[in-house]
Design a protein around this nucleic acid. Structure first.
Length: 587
RNA sequence: GACCCCGUAGCUCAGUUGGAUAGAGCAGCGGUUUCCUAAACCGCAGGCCGCGUGUUCGAAUCACGCCGGGGUCGCCA
């Protein structure tokens, strides 16, 4: 199944071809001017340019051909040569009817047979997640849902930060405090205790302290670097300590992502490719892809045409430790071996764009990426109300679970104010508040275009009016309520009919789902799904306020309207699901 | 300094592989409830699309140059 616009495009392309013009000019899209028409085709203008002819004359010829097709209720030429198109209500009804029967609601399956690895989340071991991790998690999760819905075989990988300098900082800080001396005793041969010497709470306190100490004192930084190199070189006590950090952190991280409804197929990290590192470096050396420079082993990635200075990727530092560029490269090797993907997509802060450019160039130069296209889908920073970014490493930032608690509490307050759910059980109330809170948070984040920075304004996030997640949940809940009542009263659901202006606009919006899924995937832009969902909910609200449904006396009409409600609910729920937003049974 | 991202309504943001009269939400003003959830719906008002030049039949969109904000630029992630 395809969208109506895609179907009309095929018709128009045939008309262009029949006139001896390039068929690719016959693209039909949803009209920019809904007051004039439902769809438009602008192809006559570029065609005129190519053929050096009058655009209006070309449009006339195309229009004459389109008019013979019974699909169209209206074919008009406007302005310099725009072709405006309306389809018949019967055509809308048959497409809507077909969509209602399609379990995928017409979702495009262009990704069938293709595999993608999506790398997002990227939290660090031993550090609590903060609001800065929200974007990667929420955007990445939406993309994995979208790619899957479009037929891709997706493997998501959390790619934890667990092998770099921060590990050495933690280890040396713990050494300084004398918290777990046996892990530092070179004569101890093990086994090490199964119980972690530190809790997550301990780590949350130790890391900022370690980071501050290294900042203030170069000797401490040097110590941390040494510990990092020793950890990577395989020092037993450090490895054992690292295992504890990882295990303790994972529990907290799983809980947190779990509460956001975000799941990863793989819980790998930088450290997980450690066994691949030595052979990879050996190979790169042997093939002279890597070279020595200033005591480090690097891969040169600069090119002649570069506008910008492109420093080499440093594989091995002069002290013997590897960096995250090295683990990123080894991770590509790992992914190509295990998934052989067509695409590896990195949903990581835009500030790391250059880093990824280096890694991608190095991977291609070394021929490590197989058939995979490597792509960085960056995102802008989340700023505070003062317009400055939330701090990421200095501590004192708002933690993600505190934020979730806040939006949940706010949602609960709002439910009370609205007098909703007063007679629900405490459990259901809490569950609704949680879903509404999460929806508030996710929708606010996703509705901004990826690359732009946005202001994280808690007051605004918590508002439930207008273009917000809760508005969408509310719209879905109202439809559920209607359908539930219809079922209770024994009313049948029938094939939707399209008669009124509201029904027509709602039907058109429903039928454009495949278009938005396609473009949102191509652009890696969940904000397009947000727009779609909001418009759909608005169209439904308009329809709802203008038409009686349950109280409609004409049984056939009532059934048809219930059918439209049902398809709207399925579609809205589907798009909300792509955004990672759940709909409560009632509100 | 070089390069990257951004600059659109009072505020927060869509729209940017060139197309008709630049959209939405919030805030403001005015309406709608004997009726399926008013967290809603309808209407009004609000704009040298940062500035300039250029390419084009046509520019918020492309090119070049400025201005302003943010970011990055070899051993952190």
């Amino acid at each position: 199944m395809t969208s109506l616009a895609v179907e009309l495009t095929a018709v128009a392309q045939a008309a262009f071809a029949a006139e001896g013009l390039s068929p690719e000019l016959g693209v039909v899209q949803i009209s920019d001017r809904p007051d004039l028409a439902q769809f438009q085709c602008n192809g006559a203008l570029p065609a005129a340019k190519q053929a050096k002819a009058n655009p209006r004359a070309i449009a006339e010829k195309i229009a004459a051909r389109l008019k013979t097709n019974p699909l169209f209720a209206k074919v008009e030429i406007a302005g310099p040569g725009f072709i405006n198109l309306d389809v018949t209500d019967a055509a809308l009804e048959s497409r809507v009817g077909a969509a209602a029967k399609d379990t995928r609601l017409g979702a495009p399956q262009a990704g069938t047979g293709k595999a993608a690895v999506i790398d997002f989340g990227g939290a660090n071991v031993a550090k609590p997640m903060h609001v800065g991790h929200l974007r990667s998690s929420v955007i990445g999760d939406s993309l994995q849902r979208l790619f899957r819905a479009n037929g891709w075989n997706v493997v998501s990988d959390v790619h934890l930060g667990d092998w770099g300098l921060q590990m050495g900082q933690l280890i040396s800080e713990i050494g300084h405090r004398g918290l777990a001396p046996i892990y530092f005793d070179p004569n101890f041969t093990g086994p090490y205790p199964g119980e972690s010497p530190v809790t997550m709470d301990d780590l949350e306190e130790i890391y900022p302290a370690a980071s501050a100490a290294c900042k203030a004192d170069p000797a401490r930084l040097e110590e941390a670097r040494k510990a990092t190199a020793e950890l990577q070189a395989g020092r037993h006590g450090y490895r054992a300590l690292w295992q504890h950090f990882f295990a303790v952190s994972r529990i907290g991280l799983e809980r947190e992502w779990g509460s956001l409804g975000i799941h990863f197929d793989l819980w790998k990290g930088e450290a997980s490719v450690e066994p691949l590192m030595a052979p990879m470096i050996e190979d790169l050396n042997a093939r002279h892809v890597a070279e020595e420079s200033e005591g480090a082993l690097v891969i040169r990635v600069a090119r002649n045409g570069d506008k910008k200075e492109m420093p080499p990727l440093i594989l091995v530092k002069s002290d013997g430790a590897v960096l995250y560029g090295s683990t990123d490269l080894a991770t590509i090797v790992d992914r190509v071996r295990s998934q052989n993907p067509d695409l590896i997509l990195y949903v990581v802060d835009q500030r790391q764009h250059q880093h990824f450019e280096q890694v991608f160039r190095a991977a291609r130069k070394a021929g490590l990426n197989g058939k995979a296209e490597l792509e960085h889908a960056g995102f802008g920073t989340m700023n505070g109300p003062d317009g400055k970014p939330f701090k990421t490493r200095e501590g004192g930032v708002m933690k993600l679970y505190d934020l979730i608690a806040m939006v949940t509490e706010e949602a609960d307050k709002r439910l009370t104010e609205a007098g909703l759910g007063a007679d629900y059980s405490a459990e259901e109330r809490a569950s609704i508040a949680k879903m509404v809170g999460i929806a508030t948070l996710k929708f606010a984040d996703l509705s901004n275009y990826r690359l732009t920075d946005y202001i994280f304004d808690l007051a605004r996030f918590s508002k439930f009016e207008g273009k917000t997640g809760p508005y969408l949940q509310y719209a879905a809940v109202r439809i559920q309520s209607i359908l539930r009542k219809a079922a209770e009263e024994g009313h049948k659901t029938g094939a939707p009919v399209v008669r009124s202006a509201e029904e027509r606009k709602l039907a058109l919006q429903l039928l454009s789902l495949p278009d938005v899924m396609t473009t949102a995937e191509e652009r890696r832009a969940p904000n397009m799904l947000c727009d779609y969902a909001f418009t759909l909910a608005q169209e439904f609200s308009r329809f709802y306020s203008e038409h009686h449904i349950l109280s409609e006396a004409d049984t056939a009409l009532r059934a048809a309207r219930l059918g439209l409600c049902e398809l709207t609910l399925k579609t809205l729920s589907k798009v909300l699901d792509l955004l990672g937003i759940e709909v409560p049974a009632r509100m």
